[in-house]
Design a protein around this nucleic acid. Structure first.
Lengths: 355, 355
DNA sequence: CACAACGATTGGATCGATAAAATAGCCTGA
DNA sequence: TCAGGCTATTTTATCGATCCAATCGTTGTG
């Protein structure tokens, strides 16, 4: 039964003072090279590692990053955040940090949770997810000079803080452009009701690609709350339209699933399957062979951690400015889903010169 | 700019000694009622809460529970564990604990991670997930007398520790019995290859229900690695069989999805849809209207926390024995999926007396 | 009336680290 | 020669809590 080594025990072992061992770890340049290597050997031999609680008490830093979890994660959005969380745990670990979870249901409760946890734990920083219009959390944290990074850009407010986000518009623009290049002209977008930030952004990408191609969007833009059933209802509306859409881009996999159910290959055997593109590349998309735009979540997480480190351990030469990172999603084309490169059914419009 | 209150500042406010304030929090029975209420008032007025780092240094307890995360969570199994994690965070919070995440890819790396983290953090306990045959983690922790609870029973080893698990066999038995009661006789089971603990358990429930009904299982039991494509291949095999199955119970939603794709209502319009039952009630099942057995994950998490508290804060009267909790999954019947209560196609075998 | 027993409260030591100040040794130059 | 500066290392103080032993006042007892 061997006890934990402490600074003192290592110091005795190396025949130096406690502080010298501490310096070997935190300020090695202060030591004479010979002393340094002797102390390092002692540290290795005794397998010493400083106790965080003691260090934290003295320095009021903990190497902990707080993340608030929504208690009832809805399936699909939950998927994205959970993958992000996995990535963050990994990125944090690489930087010598750990992730501490706490409950947060809604802005005000999350702020309450910050308050609680800060009173008892020395958290070094926070990572926020699911930013939205009227988000009160960022202002609260900024007022108190607490370091934080958001995964999600600050919708509707000036960006006084660092953030990482995925460029949804770029994704939908790219996939729409692909479809246009494949000859599609009537490309619909099934999105969420206005005002959701993320949803508006994803719609804008589609819209700008259509407009750039000089195509009208009248009747092609549908709005539904998220969910497969609502996607189905949107597909029905599209089917009722005079001139049907030949491809559909969606704001989420859930909506895409519903659309796919009515317009995809399974329901129209022998007919002309309509390419349907989802967003987030969830297991649902994978299971159904649905083409989808994937967020680079692991990368987003490591970027968050990088920006956080810029705040927490600023390089001496660079001033710690809030920084922003916008990552591009990438398209996951799935075979069974009759991916977006499929040409439209009508040969007349096929492979025509754009515009 | 007000500073954090400390024991000393509260003591000064209440005109007592530091230790008395400490006792008011940790051993209130030692104080005179008048003093107690005076100190409590002071604590409230100053909004004092003890700093964990300082307390942890002295008591070597941290109110932290460690959970290892698999870095690359596969979609479906990841879903279950992530929901469990949400529940655990909530349950821990209710008990005054927090969840600390760390990376763990595979047993040996997870053990390595334990070692690392214990050297620097005073973790009070661990919660392990995904127990399996030949799991080396539990023995490692037990050898060092570290408190822990597993979500997942100890497959193949004696249970020297507390655990919580979901009774997969009970779930498949129940659903199979339901199907039998509805008149089905040829009920297939599509499961994983032998030796996976969880998979064997889920198969056993189906098998025991079939055997209890005096029905043969020859040709009805298929084994596939997890995945929708493999489920599809299993369904093909079932279709090739001389006497087709009239219902299928699966070890996972992924397998069920594949089976459903070939045997469900979508592919056999006008035909006789075969009831297909999945396991875990993932978003995939929800999206497709697939009937599935849901694990009570929030409950499992709170039970884990309860057992952990029994270890960490043992009641004086009860000896801290390792305890086991086996929770029953519940069936989520979905309408579109032509749930398991559907009668088989052949009227001859319909609603006959069991056996 | 001295003294033990007890309840309520206090003061010092301690947990294990880092910050800040002090010291010891060595070198340089007026 | 000796003040002053530099480097390498040690000493002392401190972070904010709890543990433990000591103290103080009150009461009961022989």
């Amino acid at each position: 039964m061997n006890v934990r080594p402490t600074l003192d025990s290592v110091a005795a072992y190396a025949k130096v003072s406690r502080q010298t061992v501490s310096n070997a770890l935190n300020a090695p340049h202060l030591l004479h090279p010979d002393t340094l290597s002797r102390v390092q050997l002692a540290i290795e031999r005794t397998n010493y590692r400083p106790l965080r609680a003691a260090r934290s008490l003295r320095t009021s830093r903990s190497q902990l990053v707080g993340v608030g979890l929504q208690p009832a994660g809805d399936g699909v959005n939950g998927y994205v955040l959970d993958r992000f969380l996995h990535g963050l745990t990994e990125a944090a670990g690489d930087a010598g940090y750990h992730v501490l979870l706490f409950n947060a249901a809604g802005d005000s409760k999350e702020i309450q949770a910050y308050d609680d946890i800060l009173a008892t734990q020395n958290l070094d920083a926070f990572v926020l997810t699911s930013t939205h219009y009227g988000d009160r959390r960022t202002a609260w944290l900024a007022e108190r000079d607490l370091p934080f990074v958001t995964f999600g850009r600050p919708w509707g407010t000036a960006a006084g803080h660092s953030w990482v986000d995925v460029d949804g518009a770029a994704g939908t623009r790219e996939v729409t452009t692909n479809l246009l290049a494949a000859g599609h002209r009537r490309i619909a977008f099934v999105g969420w009701p206005d005002g959701s930030g993320v949803g508006d952004d994803r719609r804008d990408g589609w819209q700008s690609a259509m407009t750039a191609a000089g195509l009208p969007i009248g009747g092609l833009r549908l709005q539904r709350e998220d969910g497969a059933a609502n996607g189905r209802s949107a597909a029905e509306e599209l089917l009722r339209a005079g001139e049907p859409a030949t491809a559909v881009v969606c704001a989420s996999d859930s909506l895409a699933l519903g659309v796919f159910d009515l317009l995809g290959p399974s329901r129209r055997p022998g007919g002309n399957p309509v390419p349907v593109v989802g967003f987030d590349d969830t297991p649902v998309a994978d299971a159904l062979g649905l083409t989808s735009l994937a967020q680079p979540l692991a990368e987003a997480a490591s970027e968050c951690m990088r920006l956080l480190l810029d705040l927490l351990e600023p390089k001496p030469d660079t001033a710690a400015q809030p920084a922003h990172v916008l990552l591009a999603p990438h398209l996951v084309v799935r075979a069974t889903g009759a991916g977006p490169v499929t040409s439209p059914a009508d040969p007349a419009t096929q492979k025509g010169a754009p515009q």
